[in-house]
């Protein structure tokens, strides 16, 4: 089947989608957006968290056909989403259609040795920056899902308590960090957000 929906502000179309495919599979394998991660595919780890019409969901448990006509924001579009929110656009969003990796770019993406030194000078969302600064990233596999969830937490609660952070992130498993530095990162992002206001 064919599915049309908006990803990171851009209309996208996927063809020949098998009816049992998840949104996660379509993003990763058909749209060249592998940022959302495939750790458990049963809604028990949160690594595939995306915003679906603004709401954080596990994209592994959304059938591809269910996103027809809807808006999805992935980690690849998070920086732009956060920037637009900061500029006062309602609830973030990618109205300009200029956020995230373009589909053309994404489709050109292929297996190649990753140069671990690239990625400098990239615009980051405050939560992304805070994750790096606080040491909240180790293997990084849980990171995209955590970022989407944590960004949404700070969107609705600018000054969360530690328990609020823990509750909001309780659907995201991390195996490397023991979560302490993830808590640090969210506190840091909240504090920086507070200073900026």
């Amino acid at each position: 089947m064919r599915v049309n929906f908006t990803v990171n502000g851009r209309p996208q179309e996927a063809d020949d989608v098998w009816e049992g495919e998840s949104l996660l599979y379509v993003l990763r394998e058909r749209m060249g957006l592998p940022g959302s991660k495939n750790a458990c595919e049963q809604g028990e780890c949160g690594s595939c968290t995306v915003r679906l019409d603004g709401v954080p969901v596990c994209s592994c448990l959304v059938a591809a056909g269910q996103v027809e006509g809807r808006e999805v924001v992935t980690v690849e579009g998070l920086a732009e989403y956060a920037q637009q929110r900061a500029e006062g656009h309602q609830g973030g969003g990618c109205a300009t259609g200029a956020c995230g990796t373009s589909l053309d770019q994404a489709k050109r993406w292929e297996a190649r040795p990753a140069d671990s030194q690239t990625g400098e000078g990239v615009e980051l969302a405050p939560i992304q920056k805070a994750f790096i600064d606080a040491g909240a990233v180790q293997c990084g596999f849980c990171t995209p899902g955590l970022l989407v969830a944590a960004d949404e937490l700070l969107e609705r609660n600018a000054d969360p308590s530690d328990q609020d952070i823990r509750e909001a992130l309780s659907g995201n498993l991390c195996r490397c960090t023991g979560y302490e530095k993830i808590l640090d990162a969210v506190r840091l992002a909240a504090a920086r957000q507070g200073e900026a206001v």
Partner: peptide
């Protein structure tokens, strides 16, 4: 800070399950 941090927070770090080929 980690040299791979930026790629990991933007979703661009290529994990083994992200590999793709024509």
């Amino acid at each position: 800070l980690r040299p791979d941090g930026t790629l990991k927070v933007t979703g661009e770090f290529a994990y083994s399950s992200d590999m793709w080929h024509e």
